[in-house]
Amino acid sequence: MTTSPTIFMQGVSKRYGDAYVVHDVDLSVAPGECVAVVGHNGAGKSTLVKMALGLLTPTAGRVTLLGENPAGRQAMAFRRRIGFLPENVAFSPAMTGREVLRFYARLKQVPLGVADQLLERVGLVAASRRRVGTYSKGMRQRLGLAQALLGEPRVLFLDEPTTGLDIESRQMFYDVMAELRDAGATLLLSSHALSDIEQADRVAIMKAGRMVACGALPELRRLADLPLRIRVHVTDGNAAREFTARRTVQWLDDLRFEFTCADDGKVEAIRSVSLLEGVSDIEVMSPTLVDLCDELTREAAE
């Protein structure tokens, strides 16, 4: 097995008129890796995924999938081993779930028995003979996942896979993703849910078509160097006066205050707070994904 990247993009741009939807993006996903692309709506995540699949032709730059042009003739051969779950997946409403999955199985030349097994895997057996038009959003999404899993895919593209799902469905998605990774599949997912991103080896942050940062989550945290917030509960408002006089703190109400500290000053800060009289609780709050994205975007702009 070579170590050439499964998904490779170099200087990729997509322009409609004067507007760049994706601007000069480099991305390389190694075999077996899971990369999450995050960003606000309209940041260019879906466009990036469509270009990697060969559904859109980039205005500039080079894209390869498994070493080939994804829109080329050779791509037909390996499309059978590629799974794609589009954003807001839709199916013919008049067909039943079972018919839909069998239809896609035929197109991928997968035995129909596999389709029935996948229905069971995503928990749709009971609803498999109902029309897709009657399905809830979560059920459609499960059916979408099932079709993406047909043919034991080597590469999976999941575009906002867990948007609008309840916790149980979400957990099912994560279980399936973990299984796929154990089987050596490569995953590219786009999302804005933090819990999705925790499944990924690397996170790529996009803003207005540009990739502002890409790396493992702890690495990005270090890069952004965002302060932690420590929230302290006290039993008596006067108890911590001495401490609050020394540091800048923000009182939330009579019995709670917050202060910030750098990541490497965390232990020292907690120690000094915990020694105070009348402290009943200490909460340490890491910066959220939104904070992180905004900070990295701001840094990239400067």
Binding site: L53, R79, A90, Y104, L107, K108
Partner: peptide
């Protein structure tokens, strides 16, 4: 319009 075309075109058929 319904959004079914995108998925279909990602399948191995021209």
């Amino acid at each position: 319009d319904r959004g079914t075309l995108l998925l279909l075109l990602s399948y191995p058929l021209s």
